[in-house]
Design a protein around this nucleic acid. Structure first.
Lengths: 204, 204
DNA sequence: CTGTGTGAAGGCCTTCACAGCC
DNA sequence: GGCTGTGAAGGCCTTCACACAG
């Protein structure tokens, strides 16, 4: 199975979202030009992306919205990604309630926190366990990726727990690097840096 | 004044954060090689970035941590970016409490929400006003950028309020595009897409 | 010998130009 | 004509190779 660059995948996901809107508005066909107008990308870029997955468009007509959406989804998401969250504080709560984490593509299946006041509750249908239960809960959950959304001071400890539970992927929001054994992939997201570079672009 | 690519700036911000750690650990000098090990980038990349700003390193010794940090900050941040937030719900609360929004570089100066139960309160020292007050508060705040962190249904209305208040930059977290007049820059952040592409890389 | 600064090379990704098809 | 699909060109960014400095 061919693999595509992260940039291409990100755009494909954007196309899917736009197609969902179009389908909701009963649009049956769409041209690369219209997708370009909506997304702000170039029409050639869009055609190139889509045709790199395989051809589904029809000259003179364009792309069938529903067909294209399903086609893109099939390419991008061979199976649902199951995710668990560590830390149900401010950032964690935002993640728990974010609708994008309960789709066919992503399922946030469990959260873990140390605060006994929230352990045992469910938020948005997602149970919050104590961190100590992670080792028992995660193997049953089919999770593949863990999100770290705890304070920096606790991040390494949580990373260790994630590794111990057998997960091979970590998305780390704590503003501190964590060290993990080989074979475990970490993606650090420093929101400060993400936002600063955003503001640099916009406020210049 | 020369302008640098967004990628370069993002890396510069990362260097600054690493340098802060090094300075806190009483490291006086650092080599591009060490920065490379910490950041996961290539040493040549780092030297190229730094020298593109102007040279400050010393052969055989490396870079003086404090000097380099101040140098990079001077390049990247000529003035503090003042930001206002619309929506103090889950995502908004996370933003309000995120320490990265109260630095010398970014100041989150005010928040706006419609919920009368939280209007009038302060979170993390930041006052929450009613959305109706935006037009009066923003001009006094020296804000340059507005963040939209409200539900999709309300996003356009808020975008209009931001534009009416005279801001020229918007960072939009709502999962819906907003339309604005020419001259106003919008950066859409669809967390679903950001996360999905993240998970694609990691769990792929 | 160690480490910076930089022109040149290489690679990836976007854009262009146009062939093919309805 | 209208729109997709794609080889070729172009541009940007990263990596290499090496000159230079202490």
């Amino acid at each position: 199975m061919k693999r595509f660059s992260s940039k291409t995948i990100t755009r494909a996901l954007l196309y899917i979202r736009i197609l969902e809107d179009l389908i909701a508005n009963k649009q049956e066909f769409v041209s690369s030009q219209l997708l370009a107008d909506i997304s702000g990308l170039m029409d050639t870029q869009i055609r190139k992306d889509i045709s790199s997955f395989g051809k589904v468009g029809r000259p003179r007509i364009g792309y069938h919205t529903r067909e294209l959406k399903e086609f893109l989804e099939a390419v991008v998401l061979k199976h649902t990604v199951h995710v668990v969250l560590f830390g149900a504080g401010n950032l964690g709560s935002a993640i728990l309630k974010y609708p994008g984490f309960q789709t066919e593509k992503i399922k946030l299946v469990a959260a873990f926190d140390k605060n006994p006041r929230i352990v045992g509750r469910t938020v948005n249908g997602i149970p919050i366990y104590s961190v100590a239960e992670a080792g028992a809960v995660i193997p049953k959950s089919h999770a593949e990726v863990g999100i770290i959304a705890v304070p920096a001071a606790a991040s390494q400890e949580i990373a260790d727990a994630i590794v111990a539970a057998g997960l091979k992927g970590i998305v780390n929001f704590a503003p501190a690097s964590v060290t993990v054994p080989k074979g475990v992939q970490v993606r650090d997201i420093d929101l400060s840096i993400e936002f600063l570079s955003l503001f640099y672009d916009i406020a210049g």
